[in-house]
Design a protein around this nucleic acid. Structure first.
Length: 466
RNA sequence: GGGUCCGUAGGGUAGCUUGGUCGAUCCUUUGGGCUUUGGGAGCCUGAGACUCCGGUUCAAAUCCGGGCGGACCCA
C-alpha cells in the first residue's frame, strides 16, 4: 500500500462504505454496505456492555449554562462547539450546543437520579452522534465534524477504588471488542497534558495505521469527583453522610470502522472479519445456458443450509461474467466465496476461496459442508487477527537516544523510550522530535530518561498521530 | 489571522499559456440491444460536464473582477 491516504479515500467510495460528497465539510453519508458493517460492529460492543450497563438516549442539545459549568472541560471543547442560536426567526434566550460529548448532558440528570448508596453503582451507555467544529482538514471516519457513531458509557460509584476497578473493567471489555474485530492495539495512560478535559486520568487504545501514524480508537477516563462536584451528584452513604460520587466514562467512535478497514485491507480491497462482514459467504454461480437452472437451484440449497447454521449468505446471480464478480467481492471483503458451476455440480463439490489467504480449496457438497465453511471462516478470523498483530509487533521499536527517534518514527514505527515522567521533559521530547507522546505504557524501576538522564519511571510511547 | 494553489459528466482527466478548428478529449460509470459466461470480455447504439455572477470581445471552458466551494502551507 504505497499511498495509504489515497487508498483509504478510494476504498470508502469503491466499497460502498461512505459517500463524502455530502455538501458539508466533515460530514459523510453511510451507504448501505458500510452501514451494515457499522451495525455489526456496534452489536458486538452492545452485547459486551449489556451484561451490566443500561442503554439510554439523551437529547442532542445541551444548554449553554450546563456546558459552561465545568471550567477545564469547557476549555477543552469550546473552540469546536456547534451552536443552535435561533428558533425560527427568533434568537434563543439561551444558546444550545450540539453535544461535542455528553457529560454535560447526562450528569445533571445523574444528580437527580442518584440519592443513596443503593442507587450505586450506576452504569449506562448510549450510541449517538456528536458534533465538533473541526477547522483542520477533515478526513472521513477519522476527523469529522459529525461523529455519527459515538458509543459513550458513563458510570458513577461510591468509592474511588470502585471507579479504578471500573477503568480496568472497561479496558478488559475494549480488549475483547477489538479482539473480536482483529484490531491490534497499544494501551497507554495519556500524559497529563493530553488527558480528557476535566478528568483525573485517561487510558487510551491506539492502533498503528499502515502509514505508521497512530489512530486513537478508544478512550477510558477516570473523572474522579470533578464532575460530581460541578453537577452536584451526591449520595447518602451507609453512615448517613452525603458524599460526592466517583465517575468514569469511556468511548469508541467511527474510528473503529476506519481502523477495521485499514489494518486488514490490501491492494484488492477490504478484508472483513466474518463477525462484521455483511456477507460471510458469497456464492458465485458459474452459469451457462445449459444446466443453468440446476446450478442456481443448488446454490439456493447451499444458501439455505448455511443460513440454517446462522451464517449470512448471499448469491451473486447478476448477469455478468464471473471474473467481475470475484473482483467485486474481493473489493468488498467477503470472507469466503463459494464458486459453483456445472462441472462442480457433476463432481458434487464447490470451490471455496478465502479472502485472507486467497487460497482455493475444494469442498464436498455433503453433509459436512456447513462445518467446513465455518472452519474456513474461523481460520480467516484468526489469520486476519494474527497478521495485524504481527504488523504491530514489527512496528514497535525501542529508542536508546532522543536522536534516533525521528528515523524510527519516519520508518513507520511507534517508539518506546524511558521517561522520568516530568511534564517539562515530556514537552521537551515532543518539541525536539516533532512527534506526540502517546502515553505511559508501563512503570519501571530501571533505565535512564532519554531526555533528562534522570532515573526513568516509565516506558512511554511516542509516534506520529492522526 | 496571513499566504499559495485549484474548480470541466457519478469518479478520474485532456483542452486554458497563444480566445475561434469545442457540436469539449480519453478512461471509468451508466440505459438498451447482440454476443458471451470456469478470474475485471467484445461489438452496436444511447445517457452524462465547462462552479456561479458580472466584465472585456465579433467570439470566452480559455482573459479580467467578484462570490461560493475545495486543497495545502505559515502563525
Amino acid at each position: 500500500m504505497e499511498n495509504f491516504d489515497e487508498w483509504f479515500h478510494d476504498i470508502l467510495e469503491n466499497a460502498d462504505i461512505t459517500d463524502s460528497r455530502y455538501p458539508i465539510k466533515g460530514m459523510a453519508v453511510w451507504r448501505p454496505y458500510g452501514f451494515q458493517i457499522r451495525k455489526h460492529a456496534m452489536n458486538i460492543i452492545k452485547k459486551l456492555l449489556d451484561t451490566d450497563h443500561d442503554e439510554v438516549l439523551f437529547p442532542l442539545l445541551v444548554p449553554e449554562s450546563e456546558l459552561a459549568k465545568e471550567g477545564e472541560h469547557v476549555k477543552g471543547f469550546e473552540e469546536e462547539v456547534f451552536w443552535v442560536t435561533k428558533g425560527g426567526k427568533n434568537d434563543l434566550n439561551e444558546h444550545l450546543a450540539l453535544r461535542p460529548t455528553s457529560e454535560t448532558s447526562i450528569y445533571p440528570m445523574f444528580s437527580l437520579w442518584i440519592r443513596t448508596h443503593i442507587d450505586l453503582p450506576i452504569k449506562m451507555y448510549q450510541i449517538v452522534n456528536t458534533f465538533r467544529y473541526e477547522t483542520k482538514h477533515t478526513r472521513p471516519l477519522i476527523r469529522v465534524r459529525e461523529i455519527t457513531t459515538f458509543k459513550e458509557a458513563h458510570t458513577a460509584h461510591a468509592t474511588k477504588e470502585e471507579s479504578d476497578e471500573q477503568i480496568q473493567d472497561f479496558i478488559g471489555r475494549y480488549k475483547q471488542f477489538f479482539d473480536d474485530l482483529g484490531i491490534p492495539y497499544l494501551i497507554s495512560k495519556r500524559p497529563d497534558w493530553d488527558k480528557f478535559p476535566g478528568s483525573d486520568y485517561t487510558m487510551a487504545f491506539d492502533v498503528i495505521m499502515p502509514n505508521g501514524k497512530t489512530l486513537q480508537i478508544g478512550t477510558i477516563h477516570n473523572l474522579g469527583q470533578t464532575f460530581a462536584k460541578t453537577f452536584d451528584i451526591q449520595f447518602e452513604d451507609k453512615d448517613g453522610e452525603h458524599k460526592y460520587v466517583y465517575q468514569t466514562c469511556a468511548g469508541v467512535s467511527d474510528r473503529v470502522i476506519a481502523s477495521l478497514i485499514s489494518v486488514h485491507g490490501d491492494e484488492k480491497g477490504l478484508r472483513l472479519p466474518p463477525k462484521v462482514s455483511p456477507n460471510q459467504v458469497t456464492i458465485i454461480p458459474i452459469l451457462f445456458k445449459k444446466g443453468k437452472e440446476e446450478v442456481l437451484a443448488k446454490c439456493a440449497e447451499i444458501k439455505e443450509a448455511l443460513e440454517a447454521r446462522g451464517l449470512r449468505v448471499n448469491i451473486d446471480d447478476r448477469d455478468i461474467r464471473p471474473g467481475k464478480k470475484f473482483n467485486d467481492w474481493e473489493l468488498k471483503g467477503t470472507p469466503v466465496k463459494l464458486e459453483l458451476g456445472p462441472r462442480d455440480l457433476e463432481n458434487n463439490i464447490t470451490i471455496a476461496m478465502s479472502r485472507d489467504t486467497e487460497e482455493k480449496v475444494e469442498i464436498s457438497l455433503d453433509d459436512n459442508l456447513a462445518e467446513n465453511v465455518i472452519e474456513l471462516l474461523n481460520k480467516s478470523s484468526e489469520n486476519l487477527s494474527k497478521q495485524s498483530w504481527d504488523f504491530q509487533a514489527e512496528h514497535v521499536k525501542f529508542a536508546e537516544t532522543l536522536e534516533e527517534i525521528p528515523e524510527l518514527v519516519e520508518g513507520g514505527n511507534v517508539v518506546k523510550f524511558y521517561w522520568c515522567g516530568d511534564e517539562e521533559v515530556g514537552h521537551e521530547i515532543e518539541e525536539k522530535t516533532g512527534y506526540d507522546v502517546l502515553g505511559i505504557q508501563e512503570e519501571v524501576s530501571e533505565g535512564k530518561c532519554i531526555a533528562s538522564g534522570k532515573d526513568a519511571k516509565y516506558v512511554a510511547l511516542i509516534a506520529k498521530t492522526y
